[in-house]
Design a protein around this nucleic acid. Structure first.
Length: 415
RNA sequence: GCGGUCGUCGCCAAGCGGUUAAGGCACCUGGUUGUGGUCCAGGCAUACGGGGGUUCGAUUCCCCUCGAUCGCCCCA
């Protein structure tokens, strides 16, 4: 058994039992996206490591400890840990802005993050993402969020909460950070070790801490006041209010969560997450936000954009798994040459058809048809070749009937 | 990377130091000269994730390892 090769840790096989439901999920999502005139973009599964270092951010966990990187002839390459950086790179490289803005793009595919697997978290996982590039308006934010909501609804997932926040413009971030540090400084000694580390590295993240003693500090009136009343730029605040308005008008339930932070450096202003309580600790089913600085950072003209990504595996656990379509016809036969011709005839009509290949007696073949829950069973033996009349039976109603079929070379090529 | 739990056939699952390692489902083969699955008979783990140890003896005890799972971290 030690010889047996297993799939790598944190990866999954989608076997035929599940592959239909898997395809269904993708089909529904893609259909919804395309109805909103989003167009697919396919980018490589690996990119220059520097793309993610610059795009996602040097200080993020993703870049620091989760990348699958490898060297090839002096180049450092990395399996994409997320989709936006690659899409933006492609947008810049292919000069998609020349085709007019805004650009509405979506992608779907595998992502890779070297993490300890747990429920809803794999090392290879899949994301469906949408990017709206070229606009920095509340309406654009709303379109993006509404679109995500529509995809989720189309999948039959509505038992979710949408959390929304604004993290201001890049210029505001240091201001916010310093103000927060100043506010929490007096409590530094009582904070947990993690928070003491975060204090310098990523103070905003402290607010998410699960340690009770830390939480009592972070939920104090002083901190609460600070969060509610921190003065973002007037533009950002104004835009955020309008966005909330549009979402309300469209009946999307949301809550403003001033503590929500996102792990990628490129976010600015609007950030949001759709969260479920049904998946344990990894409840974020869709996460996104605005990234106005990213395109310029990656060498393009300064262009605002917003986008999101959904975790396919997480969605998959939340949706109903539809049955695969039934087998329309089963062909019992000992004359395969002619049976294939007839099968093709049926398939041209869009029917799902299987030809029995076993060569066993017809009784056994009939049994096989029953096990497969075939709707109709056609029998093609030497008699049928001769007469050109094919008997068939509807296995759902039990009714028998027959039809005429012109076999190619039927009379000359019988076995 | 850190902690907890777990690992017996494709799936569910008994056994918990000495068993031929139950059983069910699924699957396969045959019983039926050409009209159906539910019937009957049989098959289907030289083996209990892998490796090492303790023991006269280990699926049952110990260690390591691999994997799963839950949580931390973080995110989709």
């Amino acid at each position: 058994m030690s010889q047996k090769i297993q799939r790598p840790k944190g990866t999954q096989d989608v076997t035929p039992e599940l592959s239909h439901a898997w395809k269904h999920l993708q089909d529904v999502a893609i259909h919804t996206l395309e109805l909103a005139n989003y167009k697919a973009i396919h980018t490589p599964i690996f990119e220059a490591t520097s793309l993610f270092a610059r795009g996602v951010g040097e200080s993020t966990d993703i870049v620091n400890k989760e990348m699958y990187s490898f060297e090839k002839s002096d180049r450092s390459l990395t399996l994409r840990p997320e989709g936006t950086a690659g899409v933006v790179r492609a947008f810049v490289e292919n000069k998609l802005s020349q085709h007019g803005l805004p650009q509405r793009l979506y992608y779907i595919g595998a992502m890779f993050r070297y993490e300890r697997p747990q429920e809803g978290r794999q090392r290879q996982f899949h994301q469906i993402g949408a990017e709206l590039i070229g606009l920095d308006t509340p309406a654009a934010d709303a379109e993006s969020i509404l679109l995500a909501w529509q995809v989720l609804k189309a999948l039959g997932i509505s038992d979710l909460r949408l959390e929304l926040n604004t993290v201001g413009d890049p210029d505001d971030r240091p201001r916010f950070r310093e103000a927060l540090q100043a506010l929490l400084k007096p409590h530094f000694e009582t904070l947990c070790a993690d928070c003491q580390r975060r204090f310098e590295q990523n103070p905003i993240r402290m607010l998410d801490c699960k340690v009770p003693t830390c939480q009592t500090i972070y939920t104090s009136d002083a901190v609460e006041d600070f969060l509610q009343n921190f003065a973002w730029s007037p533009e950002a605040s104004e835009a955020f209010e309008q966005l909330c308005h549009i979402l309300s008008v469209n009946g999307v339930p949301f809550t403003v969560n001033r503590r929500m932070v996102r792990g990628l450096d490129y976010y600015s202003r609007t950030v949001f997450e759709f969260i479920t309580d049904k998946l344990g600790a990894q409840g974020t089913v869709c996460g996104g936000g605005r990234y106005n600085g990213l395109i310029e950072e990656l060498g393009g003209a300064s262009t605002p954009a917003i986008g999101w990504a959904m975790g396919v595996e997480r969605l998959f656990k939340l949706i109903e798994h539809p049955e695969a379509p039934a087998l329309d016809a089963y062909i019992v036969t000992d004359c395969h040459a002619e049976a294939f011709a007839f099968a093709e005839h049926l398939r041209e009509q869009g029917l799902k058809v299987e030809v029995d290949l076993s060569g066993r007696n017809f009784g056994k073949q009939l049994q096989a048809a029953g096990k497969r829950s075939a709707r109709h069973v056609y029998t093609i033996g030497s008699q049928e070749l001769e007469s050109g009349v094919i008997p068939f039976k509807n296995f759902e109603t039990g009714e028998s009937s027959s039809l005429n079929f012109h076999f190619p070379n039927a009379l000359t090529h019988r076995k």
